[in-house]
């Protein structure tokens, strides 16, 4: 893993006050217009060669963050920089050469592969679209990619239904790698897989990162997995990043009460320790992103909440070197 000090590396991707709102209609007949605050004023950077983990519960906006970053959703406001060049506001055509360098792997390897396309064609499509290779050269690259993700190159002529979930995810990874990207958004790439297969895919992603010199934004809800694979971790709650730090400081010394609550919710795979540890269960549910709570969005569930939390949005500040947090109480 790129455990080398990533703190002084230049950011490959930088996100500044990124906001994405969706207009929806609610009510029994869709008579009321409303806004889903999926992503609000989110800022982070991903440094070259590192893995930034993005964690949070469902509906916290972590996938929206990944999609908006890649301009697969147009942001409502805010900016995204790739190699310090602004990509927000670029046209589709201007975006195309950058798309080759920024790829994505999705959660569900069943719905992301066309059932009518051989996996060789699925992997080769980015090569042809970006005019990177054709003919025999393309075939050779497809074989090499299949080999790199641990599949037999002879599988190129088979269809997705002939493969298991883990194998399909390998195909998706090969396709993301086809146009030799520098940056890959991994959007819950292992959530749909069984435990033993998850471990295979995690190891594969780590090997490929080294081999291809990749930078990952790794989106997941499983804290143990994120701790395993990431260099730094950002925690999201209801559309906002509440804490971001190198993984050691985040997991050993969480500052935000939500991060702390999340960590205490994770069961420990050791029966004796599990019986001994305190079981503080965070109460309530995540509120709706249509009418998020005022001030700090976590305040209705927060054990530390006090007066300003309900009124003022806490400032995003560097509490310790490299350790960012948004909370009035710390």
């Amino acid at each position: 893993m790129s455990q080398t000090d990533s703190s002084n590396r230049a950011p490959l991707v930088r996100v500044e006050n990124l906001t994405k709102h969706f207009s929806v209609r609610i009510g029994a007949y869709g008579e009321t217009k409303a806004t889903v605050h999926a992503l609000d004023e989110v800022s982070f950077d991903v440094r070259r060669g590192e893995t930034l983990g993005l964690v949070g519960e469902s509906g916290c906006g972590k996938s929206t963050a990944g999609l908006t970053l890649l301009q697969l959703h147009r942001p409502t406001s805010g900016k995204v920089y790739f190699e310090e060049k602004e990509v927000t506001g670029l046209s589709e055509k201007e975006m195309r050469p950058l798309r080759r360098r920024m790829q994505i792997i999705f959660q569900d390897p069943y719905s992301t592969l066309s059932p009518r396309m051989t996996i060789g064609n699925a992997i080769g499509e980015p090569l042809w679209l970006h005019e990177l290779a054709s003919g025999r050269e393309a075939q050779e690259r497809i074989s090499r990619l299949l080999n790199d993700v641990g599949l037999n190159p002879a599988f190129a002529f088979r269809y997705p239904h002939e493969f298991s979930g883990g194998q399909r995810q390998r195909v998706c990874i090969a396709r993301a790698l086809a146009c030799e990207p520098e940056f890959i958004v991994c959007d819950e790439p292992i959530s749909a897989l069984d435990v033993s297969i998850q471990a295979q895919i995690i190891n594969l992603l780590q090997d490929l990162q080294e081999e291809y010199d990749l930078t990952y934004l790794f989106i997941a809800h499983d804290l143990a997995v994120v701790r395993h694979i990431s260099d730094r971790v950002a925690v999201m709650y209801l559309g906002r990043v509440v804490e971001m730090a190198p993984k050691e400081s985040l997991f050993d010394n969480p500052l935000h009460p939500y991060t702390n609550a999340l960590l205490l919710s994770v069961p420990v795979p050791n029966p004796r320790k599990e019986r001994q540890r305190e079981h503080i269960v965070i109460q309530g549910n995540v509120p709706s992103a249509i009418s998020p709570p005022s001030g700090c969005r976590f305040h209705p569930r927060c054990p530390l909440a006090f007066e300003p939390c309900a009124h003022e949005v806490p400032e995003w500040r560097e509490a310790e070197p490299g350790h960012w947090v948004a909370c009035h109480a710390v």
Partner: peptide, 25 residues
């Protein structure tokens, strides 16, 4: 044993590789 090795944990060592069970069921 394989299942347990494949499980990343919040307390475990990081920077290690997960042990995997090769193949599929």
């Amino acid at each position: 044993v394989g299942l347990m090795g494949a499980l990343p944990s919040l307390a475990g060592e990081t920077g290690t590789r997960l042990t995997t069970i090769g193949g599929s069921p």
